[in-house]
């Protein structure tokens, strides 16, 4: 498998009154053709900004300041806004978190999909409307032709997210980036959407990047998982390796603190003390060191780089001095 998306040492800064604050600090990520990558992290870890930077959609005052992001041979960070616009939608589809606010409330569903098709595929309107119906059918909306005429408020949250997915797929993208698309939805609907995306990925042979804070959700969805903490990738491994043999103390802490339905009910959950550091206030060494029970003096001096975990899967990489020096625990 070749890498479809290859992000190297990406840095993103927020402009502040007292100088720039680094939010994303040298992230390396790859997504292979046909692969689904789960990007897991807590709020502020830089997972969403990383993906927005690829599309040139970073908010004001936030800028990608270094690194590269090659997609199918081109560096997305160096494309002109016009060139990026051609990539956006047509080659990379995007689904956002909140289906309520991501759809235009005064436009019919069909027209919103047609707009994407006319723009990205230069389709004629009647053909585009035909295709819009097919797309709604593809994402499992019942009686899709009738729904084309509906306004967003006439649909439930789950149906709206399906429409968002249909719009994301309108350009036949090779890569679909989903930014917490189920966070606003109920559990039973969330399960339906996860199933849908997994099925579409196989059927359409896309690559998928699924951004989430929910480790349990991503377990059933991703081939590979990258765990982000404070703007860096701390661990990157195939999904079963992450869950069976997590290496980084942060990943382990996260998994341990996750309540489950299986296993023994516990009175107290193990928890990681403290909170993630704010951008601009990160320690010079490993950002997790202040919360880490295994931290050594060396952890406070330098930022550990991603390195293979001795004795584990060859694709298992971790950014932790303790693990890489002592061997996989």
């Amino acid at each position: 498998m070749t890498a479809l998306l290859d992000i190297k040492s990406l840095t993103i800064d927020i402009a502040r009154d007292n100088g720039p604050a680094r939010v994303v600090d040298g992230i390396d990520l790859t997504v292979a053709e046909g692969e689904s990558l789960g990007v897991v992290g807590e709020s502020g870890c830089g997972k969403s900004l990383t993906m927005l930077s690829l599309m040139g959609l970073l908010p004001n005052k936030i800028k990608a300041t270094g690194g590269s992001a090659h997609f199918a041979g081109r560096d997305l960070l160096r494309l002109s806004p016009k060139e990026l616009r051609k990539v956006r939608g047509a080659e990379i589809g995007f689904i956002f978190q909140d289906p309520m606010t991501s759809l235009n409330p005064v436009m019919r569903i069909g027209d919103q999909i047609v707009e994407a098709l006319v723009y990205q595929k230069a389709m004629a309107k009647p053909a585009a409307m035909q295709r819009a119906g097919e797309l709604l059918e593809l994402v499992g909306i019942p009686s899709p032709r009738d729904r084309l005429m509906a306004y967003p408020h006439e649909l439930s949250g789950g149906m709206r997210q399906r429409v968002m997915i249909a719009i994301g797929l309108a350009g036949n993208p090779r890569l679909l980036i989903a930014d917490e698309p189920t966070t606003a939805l109920d559990v039973t609907i969330q399960a339906q959407i996860v199933d849908l995306v997994r099925e579409l990925k196989d059927r359409l042979k896309m690559s998928v990047v699924w951004i989430t804070h929910d480790l349990a959700l991503i377990a059933g969805l991703a081939d590979r998982i990258a765990v982000l903490y404070a703007g860096t990738v701390v661990e990157d491994a195939p999904v079963d390796v992450i869950f069976d043999r997590p290496s980084h103390p942060y990943t382990r802490g996260l998994l341990a603190s996750l309540p489950t339905l299986a296993g023994k009910a516990m009175d107290r959950l193990p928890s990681i003390g403290g909170t993630p550091p704010e951008p601009g206030r990160r320690p010079p060494g490993c950002p997790f060191a202040p919360r880490c029970s295994l931290a050594m003096p060396a952890c406070n001096d330098a930022l550990p780089k991603l390195a293979p975990v001795p004795g584990s899967d060859p694709r298992h990489r971790v950014a932790c001095f303790v693990t890489t020096e002592k061997g996989a625990a």
Partner: peptide, 25 residues
């Protein structure tokens, strides 16, 4: 039962097949 079955489990092996509730509330 359906609600419990929809809860994602942090285990890549178990969670691929589950009983699904159709439709929405």
């Amino acid at each position: 039962r359906a609600l419990l079955s929809a809860v994602p489990e942090p285990d890549p092996k178990s969670s691929r097949q589950r009983q699904r509730l159709q439709g929405e509330v």
